[in-house]
């Protein structure tokens, strides 16, 4: 185990050295592209100056790792905070959706027809499409043939409620102007 750790540490050290050296070569070459310029600037202290450049490049690597660690902490904190928020949001949204759905169902019960009558019971027992079609027909509107009350099914359950097409409620002429009744 100890030997493995030593080997891993040596391997990582070699990688760090290699990366820093490559970065240093690139940095020096970018600034001093010709050998003459390099000789002029590095002079007789070539090795010592190169080592200091490598020091700077390793510092850059360390600072990069530190920045990434800080970003990871921020992400972890965000995740820890956002999970309960998401759970509350999901519960709230579902409750709101259920309430609105109930509200719409209640709205679709024709209050103009007295409760307890056969007609009322018959209408209330219909599916949603039939109820909407009945209400539409009372407004002199005919629903399009393929219209469905819900869409985007997940596990057979429609997620979204379809609109009654606006053109059906308020018909327009071919010029886009409202057609008077």
């Amino acid at each position: 185990m100890t030997s493995f750790i030593q080997q891993a540490t040596r391997f990582i050290d070699q990688k760090i050295d290699s990366m820093a050296s490559t970065m240093a070569i690139h940095a020096i070459h970018a600034e001093f592209p010709t050998p003459v310029e390099k000789q002029a600037i590095f002079g007789s202290y070539k090795d010592q100056r190169t080592n200091l450049v490598i020091y700077n490049e390793k510092a850059l690597l360390q600072n990069g790792a530190t920045t990434a660690a800080i970003i990871s902490v921020a992400l972890a904190l965000f995740s820890v905070i956002s999970f309960p928020l998401a759970a509350v949001g999901l519960g709230g949204s579902l409750a709101v959706r259920y309430s609105i759905s109930q509200n719409i169902d209640e709205m679709l019960k024709l209050k103009s027809i007295p409760a307890g009558t056969e007609e009322k019971e018959e209408i209330d027992s219909r599916d949603l499409k039939s109820k909407v079609a009945t209400l539409a027909s009372r407004a002199g509107v005919v629903l399009p043939e393929g219209w469905k009350p819900g869409y985007a099914k997940v596990l057979g359950f429609p997620l979204f409620r379809s609109e009654i097409p606006w053109d059906t409620i308020f018909p327009r002429s071919s010029h886009g102007r409202p057609v008077s009744e």
Binding site: G89, L90, G92, S93, L94, V96, R97, I100, S101, N103, I104, M107, L108, V132, L135, A136, R138, A139, G140, V141, L159, F160, R161, S162, E163, I164, W166, I169, F170
Partner: peptide
């Protein structure tokens, strides 16, 4: 009756917004 259908559509919009929130 037409106002009723418009109201139905608008409640549908509200419900869909709640579904988007849930998603």
């Amino acid at each position: 009756e037409k106002e009723f259908l418009v109201l139905y559509n608008k409640k549908g919009v509200l419900q869909n917004a709640a579904v988007v929130g849930a998603v």
